[in-house]
Computed example of a mutant assay.
Amino acid sequence: MTLEILKIKEELRDLIDAYAYLSDEKKIPEVMGLFTPDATYKVYMGDFLAANVSGTETMEKEFNGHASLVKTYFTMNGQHTVKIDGDTATGVSFSQIKMIRASEGKSILTDYSVKYDDKYVCLNGKWLIKERIGYFIIVEERPFNG
């Protein structure tokens, strides 16, 4: 493995970590800066396609709408495997996401176990997400007393 490949792998890992950090802090405009302008984002809950948006302008509206319903996000990234092919790459990553929302005057904690399939592209020396598909594999919801 060359130093160049190692550098790219680190940049791609930093990209998905930045997605988690910025999303947790609800910095949606900054999150959009991690995507190509024509990016696509899909979410599957089991076999159900729950979201399918294209373009960062539309994505920003969707993300802001979702974030407005959430009191707190907390994301832990796990494995991240990439295959690099010049200025493009594909990746698989896994995350644990916790969300706290209000429902009927109570706080509800939802735990998500997520697998992301990503396509990345390097534009002007910067790696960006071109396509992200989130598979929400395990979803657990319970009252939160914290």
Rank of each mutant, 00 (worst) to 15 (best):
residue 72 T to Q: 15
residue 60 E to F: 00
residue 140 E to Y: 08
residue 103 S to C: 05
residue 19 Y to T: 04
residue 59 M to S: 02
residue 75 T to A: 03
residue 108 I to Q: 05
residue 93 S to T: 08
residue 27 K to S: 13
residue 46 G to H: 02
residue 75 T to H: 15
residue 133 I to M: 06
residue 89 A to G: 01
residue 58 T to C: 04
residue 71 K to C: 06
residue 135 Y to M: 00
residue 13 R to S: 14
residue 94 F to T: 03
residue 19 Y to W: 12
residue 20 A to L: 08
residue 90 T to M: 09
residue 109 L to P: 01
residue 79 Q to E: 09
residue 15 L to H: 00
residue 77 N to W: 03
residue 97 I to M: 11
residue 118 D to Y: 15
residue 51 A to G: 04
residue 47 D to K: 13
residue 92 V to M: 14
residue 87 D to P: 10
residue 128 L to K: 08
residue 87 D to F: 01
residue 78 G to P: 06
residue 60 E to S: 09
residue 40 T to I: 10
residue 130 K to F: 10
residue 135 Y to A: 01
residue 128 L to D: 03
residue 55 G to R: 03
residue 113 S to R: 13
residue 49 L to N: 04
residue 4 E to D: 07
residue 41 Y to A: 03
residue 70 V to G: 03
residue 60 E to D: 00
residue 137 I to W: 15
residue 32 M to P: 02
residue 136 F to R: 14
residue 63 F to V: 00
residue 107 S to T: 06
residue 14 D to W: 11
residue 110 T to W: 10
residue 98 K to S: 03
residue 26 K to I: 02
residue 68 S to D: 14
residue 80 H to W: 09
residue 9 K to H: 06
residue 116 Y to L: 08
residue 95 S to D: 01
residue 72 T to W: 14
residue 137 I to M: 09
residue 19 Y to N: 09
residue 103 S to M: 12
residue 18 A to Y: 11
residue 71 K to T: 05
residue 5 I to P: 00
residue 133 I to S: 13
residue 99 M to H: 10
residue 53 V to L: 09
residue 23 S to L: 10
residue 45 M to P: 01
residue 80 H to N: 06
residue 19 Y to S: 12
residue 126 K to H: 02
residue 29 P to I: 06
residue 80 H to Y: 01
residue 97 I to A: 15
residue 63 F to I: 00
residue 132 R to L: 06
residue 32 M to F: 03
residue 86 G to E: 07
residue 38 D to Q: 11
residue 132 R to P: 08
residue 42 K to V: 00
residue 96 Q to R: 14
residue 6 L to D: 04
residue 42 K to G: 05
residue 107 S to A: 11
residue 81 T to K: 15
residue 98 K to Y: 10
residue 41 Y to W: 11
residue 9 K to R: 15
residue 56 T to V: 09
residue 137 I to R: 14
residue 12 L to G: 08
residue 128 L to T: 01
residue 127 W to S: 00
residue 114 V to I: 14
residue 109 L to Y: 02
residue 121 V to A: 08
residue 124 N to F: 03
residue 57 E to M: 12
residue 26 K to G: 11
residue 133 I to R: 13
residue 119 K to R: 15
residue 60 E to L: 03
residue 90 T to Y: 15
residue 143 P to M: 12
residue 86 G to P: 01
residue 116 Y to K: 01
residue 13 R to C: 05
residue 46 G to M: 02
residue 141 E to G: 13
residue 53 V to C: 05
residue 144 F to K: 01
residue 97 I to N: 07
residue 90 T to N: 08
residue 30 E to S: 13
residue 96 Q to K: 08
residue 13 R to Y: 14
residue 69 L to V: 04
residue 81 T to N: 15
residue 104 E to H: 07
residue 94 F to V: 12
residue 31 V to K: 07
residue 76 M to H: 14
residue 7 K to G: 07
residue 109 L to E: 10
residue 127 W to G: 04
residue 50 A to Q: 04
residue 28 I to Y: 12
residue 48 F to N: 07
residue 40 T to E: 15
residue 90 T to R: 08
residue 113 S to I: 05
residue 55 G to N: 05
residue 24 D to L: 05
residue 50 A to T: 00
residue 90 T to F: 12
residue 146 G to C: 00
residue 3 L to T: 10
residue 95 S to H: 10
residue 140 E to V: 08
residue 53 V to D: 03
residue 60 E to K: 10
residue 144 F to A: 05
residue 19 Y to L: 13
residue 117 D to A: 11
residue 127 W to C: 07
residue 26 K to A: 12
residue 12 L to Q: 09
